[in-house]
Amino acid sequence: MTSATTLTAHNLARLLQATAPHVAAEGIGLDQIDGVRFDSDGIHLHAIATDRYTVAVARARLQTAGGASEPFARTVHGHSLPTLRAWVDAHRGDAALNLTAEADHLVLTGPRGTLRIPATGTEDFFDWRKLVHTTLADRPADEPCTRWTSRLWERWQHAGREITTWHTGGTKPLLVLGADFIGLQAPNRPATEQAQTTAEALDAWKASLGPDTGQRLDLATVVPDPSPREYPTATTVPQMSEELLRQTLNSTHGLVNAPSSDPGAIAAYALSGVHAWSAYRLLAALMQADPDLATATVADLGEQLEDGAISEWAWEAATDAGHDPQQWITARAQDQAAKPTVASS
């Protein structure tokens, strides 16, 4: 047995590309899933990611010389993934990359040098093999599979925020139902008259999944939700407008009556009032420019507020806009630490 795991740069890049869209955002209190989990069984290197709603598992066969490598499992967290991807992309696709697991790092060695990327292996990462077995448990092994062209799935993203699907199997089309919307998608016809069964389609994954232990996991509960928070749950434009105006007036009234000896309370009231009034003005302008967009946005916002994980979307939005949200958090912590502590009498 060797400690080094070898695969091509192309395969490692493919694993990252396939799983990156499913990584949970940082800053939501779920550190165990805010990255990509690399799980090597000595035959394949698996990459696993989840955002609590979807799970993605991709694998590549190892090219380790001299026999199988030692199994390992390490998670590379979100803030380190861009560095890892850039290092991998700097190599030719056929370049051999060696991976070695250390206690708190994943060490990669290739033609362009060595990269030691922070990685953890002790956190409570969910049992993805057991979860897949749970999904397959109630499906007959001899049931025919249906093949779909995945590039067509994105065409349904405007069918509605929530859609209903129905599929009778085989070569029958997929029925897609949304609000004031109905659609069909035809499956790919199998190359032969007899379609693959579930067992045949999954036969190649037996080595990765291992035997079914009979224990079951539920995707909805396999990763805990972030701590619930209380937010207003207005789902219509009139409700949201009323809530924002109420918040503006409550905040400005609180600002006037806040004790002058409490600068923190004064700042909180002022900030709350300014943001509520700004949101009201922007919502009113959006209603004039595009009422349909305003209605859809408020409904979507209401769902996010009820879910309570708005920090997840805020973190992603800040990152997409080119900001560094981690720097904001660090700066705030430093600012709080620098403030003098007032002893109570």
Rank of each mutant, 00 (worst) to 15 (best):
M1H: 11
T5P: 02
L7I: 12
A9M: 06
A20W: 05
H22E: 09
D31T: 15
D34A: 13
R37G: 04
R37Y: 03
F38V: 15
I43G: 08
I43F: 08
T50H: 09
A60Q: 06
T64G: 12
E70T: 14
T75R: 08
S80H: 12
T83S: 08
L84N: 07
A90F: 11
A90E: 14
H91A: 14
D94R: 02
E102I: 05
G113K: 04
D127N: 01
A137P: 02
D138M: 06
D142Y: 04
C145W: 00
T146I: 06
W148D: 11
R155W: 05
Q157Y: 03
I163T: 10
H167M: 13
T168G: 12
T171D: 15
L175C: 06
L177Y: 03
G178E: 09
G183S: 14
P190M: 05
A191K: 03
Q194Y: 03
A199Q: 11
K206R: 13
S208Y: 02
S208Q: 11
L209T: 03
Q215A: 14
V223R: 05
P228T: 03
P228S: 04
P232A: 01
P232F: 01
V237S: 00
M240S: 07
R246G: 01
L249E: 09
L249N: 09
T252H: 11
D262Y: 07
P263T: 07
P263I: 07
A268F: 11
L271E: 13
G273Y: 07
S278M: 07
Y280D: 09
Q288D: 13
T295P: 01
V298W: 00
D300T: 15
L301K: 00
A309S: 12
A318C: 09
D324G: 02
Q326N: 11
Q327V: 02
A338L: 03
T341N: 10
V342R: 09
